[in-house]
């Protein structure tokens, strides 16, 4: 019962409600919590895995062994590299189209209204639903996967860019104008720099969706990549391989997300939009 945690107890700092005053310092060294958390997770996992066959629910040990094997013979690097390259290339294409479109939508109300019927409609369509058209239009090669990732990235980045333009402070634009700047100067000196963190935030949101899309696309139509690895392991009931690939996907996604945050922090130390969190 958090409210009654004894005021003199060293545990007060972690058991008293997060909003209570004067909770004091954490009694444990900082590394203890992540370790405890990992041990808890591994214990729960082993307990669950112990009741099933390895072809249904592999234990942490079996997965660790498989991970070592896949890291040693290079399988995991190969498939992860292919998925990562697809994501990066698709993102670059989607972003290259989305940023100018988003800027134009933010700067010109007429253009925004022209585009809105599509951005407002198509962004609700899961990219993977387009897989069939992607395959018909671009064939079963790399181009169809790049199209799906680019399609995915386009909406997140274009919407975020448009929002960034809308949130540019009027006073900063007026300052440039009153100092004799042209409209082009305001776009280049004020709007573009202040939109970059929003673009990064849009990429962050889009990246999560892009991961889901690439996995589905690789399951449905590919012969390499982490999604393919997962689906092909199914045929031999190698659930340990499946879990290794899943964890690799999670780590890749986490790394991409942290990279966007780090870039945004570095570029905009004091003026990050609130979406980036504390």
């Amino acid at each position: 019962m958090p409210a009654r945690a004894d005021a003199t107890s060293p545990w007060r700092s972690v058991l008293a409600p997060s909003w209570s005053l004067g909770r004091g310092a954490d009694p444990l060294p900082t590394f203890v919590w992540p370790v405890a958390s990992a041990v808890l997770l591994a214990a729960a996992w082993s307990l669950a895995a112990g009741r099933f066959d390895v072809t249904v629910f592999p234990s942490p040990l079996a997965v660790a062994r498989e991970a070592m094997r896949m890291a040693a013979d290079g399988t995991i690097w190969e498939h992860a590299g292919i998925s990562a390259a697809r994501l990066a290339a698709g993102f670059a294409i989607g972003g290259a189209v989305a940023v100018p479109v988003g800027l134009a939508m933010g700067l010109s109300p007429f253009f925004r209204r022209m585009m809105e019927p599509f951005t407002e409609f198509f962004r609700f369509i899961p990219a993977i639903a387009m897989v069939v058209f992607a395959l018909i239009w671009f064939g079963i090669g790399e181009a169809s996967k790049l199209f799906l990732i680019a399609y995915n990235a386009f909406f997140s980045i274009a919407m975020a860019t448009e929002m960034g333009v809308a949130r540019v402070e009027r006073s900063r634009i007026n300052a440039v104008l009153s100092l004799g700047g042209s409209r082009r100067d305001t776009a280049l000196l004020v709007v573009l720099p202040s939109v970059v963190p929003y673009i990064l935030q849009g990429m962050r949101i889009g990246m999560g969706r892009a991961f889901a899309t690439i996995v589905s696309a690789e399951i449905l139509a590919a012969n390499a990549g982490l999604g393919y690895l997962i689906y092909s392991a199914r045929e031999f009931s190698r659930m340990d391989t499946v879990v290794v690939a899943i964890v690799a996907l999670g780590l890749l996604g986490l790394a991409a997300d942290r990279a966007f945050v780090a870039i945004a922090r570095r570029l905009y130390r004091h003026t990050l939009p609130e979406e980036f969190g504390p």
Binding site: V56, F57, I230, L249, G250, G253
Partner: peptide, 15 residues
């Protein structure tokens, strides 16, 4: 949160 849900499909079908 960073694991694409669809990546769980093989496990889900096995379970």
């Amino acid at each position: 949160r960073f694991i694409p849900p669809i990546a769980m499909i093989v496990l889900a079908v096995a379970w």
